[in-house]
Simulated assay, not measured.
Amino acid sequence: MSSSAAKHDVFQAIADPTRRQLLHLLAQQEMSVTVISGHFPMSRTAVSKHLRVLSEAGLVREQKVGRETRYRMQPEPLIELKDWLSHYERFWENKMQALRRFVEEDPDEDIPPAKPHLVKGQPKKEGQ
């Protein structure tokens, strides 16, 4: 398997909820794996594996600082995701416009007037 085939794409990388949480965390600041691990109920090794997937997708960059490795988010690869999703925005926009029309409709237009001779679905008896 070639090295380019072994790399993860952005879609694969963000498919996992833990990796999405990692990105959210790293978007705020650069952190070491030890600090990152403190935010998750898993081993440091498991966190490192998730970071490796994010790194292979280009979403995280690592930098050696002394004896520790620090990680930071690289948002540029998310542009691929944004471009892909933008194609489908028109479908969402159509649904939102339909919802807006439905909500803004005058509800009295579609409801027939109440019939005074009916009480709880029963016809009113003569002489009442």
Results as ranks from 00 to 15, higher is better:
H8D: 01
A6D: 01
S86G: 11
V65R: 10
P113W: 12
L22I: 15
R52T: 13
H87S: 13
E105V: 00
N94C: 12
Q12A: 04
L23K: 14
K64P: 09
H50M: 11
E56P: 03
D83F: 03
S86Q: 14
H24D: 15
A6L: 00
Q21G: 15
Q74R: 13
Y71V: 10
Q97T: 13
E93T: 14
E89R: 14
L26F: 12
D16R: 08
W84Q: 06
E30T: 05
R61E: 06
L118P: 02
I14P: 02
L23Q: 15
N94K: 10
R52C: 06
K7W: 00
R100E: 09
P77T: 05
V119T: 03
R101P: 01
M1L: 06
D83V: 05
M73N: 15
Q128Y: 11
L99A: 12
M42A: 03
K64T: 12
L118Q: 01
G66P: 10
Y88N: 14
R101H: 07
E126Y: 03
G38P: 08
S32L: 02
A13I: 00
R52W: 07
R52G: 04
W92G: 14
Q12M: 05
R61W: 05
E105G: 02
G127V: 09
H8T: 00
D110G: 13
L85Q: 05
A98I: 02
A57K: 01
D9P: 01
H39W: 11
R70T: 10
S43V: 01
G66M: 11
E62K: 12
R52F: 11
D83P: 00
K95R: 14
K82R: 03
K49E: 12
H87N: 13
G121V: 05
L118E: 09
K82L: 08
I111Y: 07
H24Y: 12
I36Y: 07
L85R: 03
A27S: 09
D9H: 03
V119K: 10
M42H: 09
A98C: 11
E80A: 07
E56H: 06
R90G: 15
K115M: 11
S37R: 07
E62R: 12
D83L: 08
V53P: 00
Q29T: 04
V10M: 01
V65E: 06
Q122E: 05
A15I: 07
L25A: 14
H39K: 00
Q74D: 08
L85I: 10
M31S: 03
P17H: 12
F102G: 00
H117V: 06
P123S: 10
D108S: 07
V35H: 03
P113K: 15
L85K: 07
R61N: 06
T45W: 06
V65W: 06
Q97H: 07
M42Y: 09
F40A: 08
A57G: 06
V60N: 01
A46M: 11
K95S: 14
L54K: 06
I79N: 00
I14H: 03
A27D: 08
R101F: 09
K120H: 04
Y88V: 10
V10Y: 00
A15W: 07
H87P: 01
Y88K: 11
L25T: 12
R72A: 13
L59N: 00
